[in-house]
């Protein structure tokens, strides 16, 4: 149970770093005269990350296996969608060497991948009902 809680806190922390990064060191291209696609990618990613953080914190409140499995399934789905937001679901800048290609997209894909992996691990391992 402690391992699961550590995993939940880790997910929330990693997504927190992504949100902070998208506003600072992993920020997409600056908004000028035109608002580019990467700006909307960043906004959508922040929204999805916030949802994952909330769900992970909510999971800490309950020891119920089915509740945890439900939330884990949701987190897995959200993180998979998140990985495909930059460049697939929403187009980013055309130039391959702009900030959104070099920093934002890899950061989002890496964080979403790590969260998905941790969640798959939780789904596989967290099968026994919690001790009452």
């Amino acid at each position: 149970m402690l391992k699961i809680k550590i995993a939940d806190i880790a997910i929330a922390a990693i997504e927190g770093v992504l949100v902070a990064g998208l506003f600072s060191f992993w920020s997409p291209c600056p908004v000028g005269e035109h608002i580019m696609g990467c700006h909307w990618v960043s906004n959508v990613t922040v929204a999805l990350s916030s949802a994952v953080i909330l769900l992970s914190l909510l999971k800490l409140l309950s020891g119920e296996v089915l509740f945890r499995r439900g939330i884990n399934s949701a987190v897995l789905l959200i993180s998979l969608i998140q990985a495909f937001v930059p460049g697939w679901l929403i187009a980013i800048c055309a130039h391959e060497h702009m900030r959104c290609h070099v920093y934002s997209q890899p950061a989002v894909v890496t964080v979403a991948g790590i969260v998905a992996l941790i969640t798959i691990g939780e789904l596989v391992l967290d099968r026994k009902p919690a001790a009452v």
Binding site: E96, H101, V102, P106, V109, T110, G113
Partner: peptide
């Protein structure tokens, strides 16, 4: 598969950095 996805998303980063 994970390495392929990771390498493709880090392609621009590697090329420019």
């Amino acid at each position: 598969v994970m390495a392929a996805v990771w390498s493709l998303s880090f392609k621009s980063f590697l090329e420019s950095e």
